[in-house]
């Protein structure tokens, strides 16, 4: 067995597969690589196989086939070592309702070999990190959903893991709590922890993740940075509402923009296909202003991850509208 080093990727899976009793193929031959320092998103609808993958990577579920390493440690060959290097917050929040938040964190410290005053200090530090100092000495059953999530997150961090797994960390939270969790995840990541999180939310994958993979029916259908995936979909569209302005002179005023692919004249509007919509807007406004052309409005439409999802799976992830093929 080779010795795991800090150069090994955070997660590396080859041909990972899990078939449940009864023949459900939850995960089918997944290849995955999460680099050190990344926030990696695993995006997919209900039943796609996200949790099954995470449970395999966390040593909770033996793979039917394939292999996986976390922080360079094989999860099947050396689960004990793998457990020392990872932190896990599962989809179902696992809290003990009759303990207080502080007791839970101190026990968690103890299970990772941190004891006595060091455990008390670490628990306090984590309670501060997730903003639970006031509720720290109440039993966890009195916590709100968001507080439980935050405590669960804190409990995954006691031993400063190299790799953190978060299975749907924001599902069921209101938008404000979601933003709080995002901030915490970013802060944890900035401290050097690699993060792999699953989500059903396009926005979460887009805003939070450096790279992501879309999983559907147990297979990874596409993988890349959010920007790259969207860029593969085509270009941004800047539409300029003419509001009576002359088509030709407007077109001439804008002229050759950097990254301009083509211009389509629509009824009462110009559609400019550009590489970078937001960057182009400033230049378009400046040029129109110089020629003293007044237009009705300028808007950018960018391809979304939903468009990526649609092209990869033939379905939309969010909203339940049927999409004609």
């Amino acid at each position: 067995m080779s010795i795991a080093t800090a150069d090994d990727p955070a997660v590396e899976a080859r041909g990972l597969r899990r078939t449940f009793k009864g023949g459900v193929e939850a995960v089918r031959d997944i290849d995955l690589r999460v680099e050190r320092g990344e926030i990696f998103g695993f995006l997919g609808p209900n039943g796609a196989g996200k949790s099954t993958t995470v449970r395999m990577l966390c040593t909770l579920l033996p793979p039917t086939a394939g292999s996986a390493k976390v922080a360079g440690v094989d999860v099947v060959a050396d689960p004990a070592e793998a457990r020392r290097r990872i932190g896990v917050a599962l989809q179902e929040i696992g809290l003990d309702p009759v303990q207080t938040g502080r007791e839970l964190l101190e026990l968690q410290c103890g299970l990772y070999g941190i004891q006595g005053s060091a455990a008390r200090a670490r628990a306090q530090e984590l309670l501060e990190l997730v903003g639970l100092t006031e509720a720290a000495d109440r039993r966890t059953k009195t916590y709100s959903g968001g507080m439980k999530r935050r405590l669960d997150l804190a409990s995954a961090l006691v031993h400063s893991p190299e790799v953190l797994f978060l299975d749907e960390p924001t599902t069921g939270l209101d938008p404000a709590s979601r933003l709080t969790i995002w901030d915490e995840v970013r802060r944890i990541n900035a401290g050097g922890t690699s993060v792999m999180l699953t989500t059903q939310y396009l926005e979460e994958a887009d805003q939070l993740c450096d790279r992501l993979a879309i999983i559907d029916a147990g297979r990874i259908v596409v993988e890349g940075t959010p920007g790259r995936l969207k860029a593969q979909m085509g270009h941004d569209v800047v539409s300029v509402a003419l509001n009576g302005a002359d088509v030709e002179s407007t077109k001439a005023a804008i002229g050759e923009l950097p990254g301009l692919e083509r211009v389509v004249v629509e009824s009462e509007a110009l559609a400019l296909y550009v590489e970078d919509g937001p960057a182009s807007i400033a230049e378009i406004v400046r040029r129109l202003d110089r020629q003293r052309i007044r237009v009705g409005g300028i808007a950018v439409a960018r391809p979304s991850l939903d468009d990526v999802f649609l092209r990869s799976t033939g379905r939309r992830l969010e909203g339940d509208e049927e999409v004609a093929a």
Binding site: E92, D96, L111
Partner: peptide, 16 residues
């Protein structure tokens, strides 16, 4: 009860 609540998973994933 602990298995149901999910806390058991947390114990299983700890290096004990």
């Amino acid at each position: 009860t602990e298995i149901d609540l999910g806390y058991f998973d947390k114990l299983l994933v700890a290096p004990i």
